[in-house]
């Protein structure tokens, strides 16, 4: 009978070298970033008066401004709907091209995915700034920004859905000699349609949130009024805009969450 041996801890384990190392690295990075960004905790508290003053002025919303912003708010929703639709429409072929169970050519798949990764790195406001320069101030720039932004996001969500489908129906159709298009139409589409719609609605939610600030750089919608009120120091109007945006976002989220629950 062998005597049970107590598992021995290595030197690194005994002295928590890993944990201490990570902590030191984290602290080093924290101090470095604090120095680089000029963080000054005292200054924040000594200027807290100005910040609370802003909040106080915001806590007294100018309710009669509501009538002014209804139209731009609706425009914001319209921008989001159109942008998401265009983006999702373009995303479908790219999603098919990057799904590993449909496309067996590794190079084609890799290239498509690399392209999608690159598109996804660009922040929405940055795209908006560039498209305002191209298309001029107005909702066109906003729609195109949202289309590209949702294209990057939707195509990734879509190809992940496609990769999870059951391959049985595809093989059945393939074995009777169906073409690629027929296979996609009769075997792939019925399996993914509900999830596609669900992700479409999810992207729409995110786009409604995003579109409310795009106007800040001139890309149409409620953001234009947000910028105007901030520039004119009319913080009571800013408060109305933020509250109205909140209501719209909550309503859209609620509707879309309900629809998604019904779908899945």
């Amino acid at each position: 009978m062998s005597t049970p041996t107590i598992p021995r801890r290595s030197w690194a384990q005994r002295y928590h070298v890993k944990g201490i190392g990570w902590t030191v690295l984290l602290l080093f990075l924290l101090v470095g970033s604090a120095q680089m960004t000029g963080v000054n905790v005292g200054m924040f508290f000594s200027n807290l008066g100005q910040f609370t003053n802003l909040l106080v002025r915001m806590s007294n919303p100018a309710w009669d401004y509501t009538t002014v912003i209804i139209q731009p708010l609706l425009e914001t929703i319209q921008m989001a709907v159109l942008g998401t639709t265009i983006g999702a429409a373009f995303a479908i072929p790219f999603a098919v091209l990057s799904a590993s169970n449909l496309i067996h050519n590794r190079w084609l798949r890799g290239l498509t995915r690399l392209f999608l990764d690159l598109v996804r790195t660009l922040p929405d406001l940055l795209l908006a700034a560039i498209f305002v320069a191209i298309f001029g101030i107005g909702s066109t720039a906003g729609v195109i920004t949202l289309a590209i932004f949702s294209f990057g996001m939707v195509s990734k969500l879509f190809y992940e859905v496609i990769e999870t489908i059951d391959m049985g129906p595809l093989e059945a159709l393939e074995s009777v000699g169906a073409t690629k298009i027929t296979i996609i139409w009769y075997a792939v589409l019925p399996q993914i349609l509900n999830q596609f719609i669900s992700y479409f609605l999810y992207t729409l939610e995110i786009n409604v949130r995003a579109s409310t600030v795009l106007g800040y750089l001139g890309a149409g919608g409620i953001g234009v009024f947000l910028q105007r009120s901030l520039n004119e120091f009319n913080y009571n109007q800013t408060a109305v805009i933020i509250l109205a945006t909140l209501v719209v976002v909550l309503v859209i989220d609620g509707v879309s969450n309900h629809l998604r629950r019904v779908l899945l």
Binding site: E75, Q78, L82, I134, F135, G136, T140, V143
Partner: peptide, 11 residues
């Protein structure tokens, strides 16, 4: 949506 948005056109 499509009726509501003014297509500002290309500059």
């Amino acid at each position: 949506t499509i009726n509501g948005l003014k297509f500002t056109g290309f500059q």
